[in-house]
Design a protein around this nucleic acid. Structure first.
Length: 277
DNA sequence: AGACAAACCTGTCTGC
DNA sequence: TGCAGACAGGTTTGTC
């Protein structure tokens, strides 16, 4: 579900939790990401008794910082994960796996039916040494993504361009929806071999990636089924998708029928006429 | 190097 | 109505 715009939307809607003090932590005890059990003790040490100082985002990961604690809480939403700020009186839905009890009668809850998400801790100030964050590439919303950089990485690889876009060690935050959308916007075929990407098209693609992510963010993210922000609100970007999940519909640019093709095991949508190899 | 499949899980939708 | 199968926004791991 959540790619960079969705994760950033969650981060922003968690702002009202800043300053809240954590009094307790509960866990379902079920393992999350890759069947690894939650380190509940580490989570408690990092958060219980402290106040939330801020929430940061690295790629699709969220980092929650606490006062006077050397570890931050690390959250990845996986496919169906939700991080919600609710009143403690609100009923706890199924698939709730971690709950932080906050001051002011509120709770921060992590739920995830498929349990592909992650909740853990990372050393504050040395987050980048965490295995999950060590190899993250540039952040497209931080102005770090340039055509030159994208071109450099593309030249070094022979893979299909869409696969390159999904590689978090190059650009952190693009997922399956926005990979298709950015390639459509840049008018480049998802199957183009990376090393054949011209510098000019790399510039265009870099701009397209940023534009597509920025617009999605202004719409509060894309909700196709599961995504909601910390307040439980769905995003409004789904209606602005040009090709994703629109197989057979006319291309908004040239009216040719949009096609679906599996690349790297993931559904990929593109216009066969105006996206050229 | 890279393509591919499977694995981790549950829910939903489709077609018979 | 029931059931099987396909599919889902992510990441890791293993095989060829």
């Amino acid at each position: 579900m959540p790619e960079l715009p969705e994760v950033e939307t969650v981060r922003r809607t968690l702002a009202p939790a800043v300053g809240a003090k954590v009094s307790a932590l509960w866990s379902s005890g079920l393992p999350l990401h890759m069947k690894r059990p939650l380190d509940v003790d580490a989570l408690r040490r990092a958060s219980v008794g402290a106040s939330i100082e801020g929430v940061r985002r690295l790629g699709k990961y969220l980092l929650i910082d606490f006062s006077r604690r050397s570890d931050s809480v690390l959250v990845h939403l996986g496919m169906t994960g939700r991080l919600r700020l609710v009143r403690a009186s609100e009923p706890r839905g199924a698939h709730t796996h971690v709950v932080w009890t906050l001051s002011g009668g509120r709770e921060l809850r992590f739920s995830d039916p498929r349990r592909f998400g992650q909740v853990g801790v990372a050393s504050r100030g040395a987050e980048r040494e965490h295995p999950a964050l060590r190899r993250l590439g540039v952040d497209p919303l931080a102005g770090e993504l340039t055509g030159a950089l994208l071109h450099l990485h593309a030249l070094a690889r022979r893979t299909q361009l869409k696969t390159l876009l999904l590689d978090q060690s190059i650009i952190a935050g693009i997922g399956n929806i926005y990979a298709s959308e950015a390639l459509w916007r840049a008018e480049i075929s998802p199957t183009l071999r990376s090393y054949r990407l011209s510098r000019e098209r790399a510039d265009r693609l870099a701009r397209a990636v940023v534009a597509v992510l920025r617009r999605a963010l202004t719409k509060g993210g894309t909700s196709l089924r599961d995504f909601v922000d910390a307040d439980g609100l769905e995003g409004n970007n789904a209606g602005y998708l040009s090709v994703y999940a629109r197989e057979g519909e006319p291309c908004p640019r040239c009216k040719a029928a949009i096609r679906r093709k599996v690349i790297q095991g993931r559904a990929t949508f593109y216009c066969p006429r105006c996206q050229r190899v």
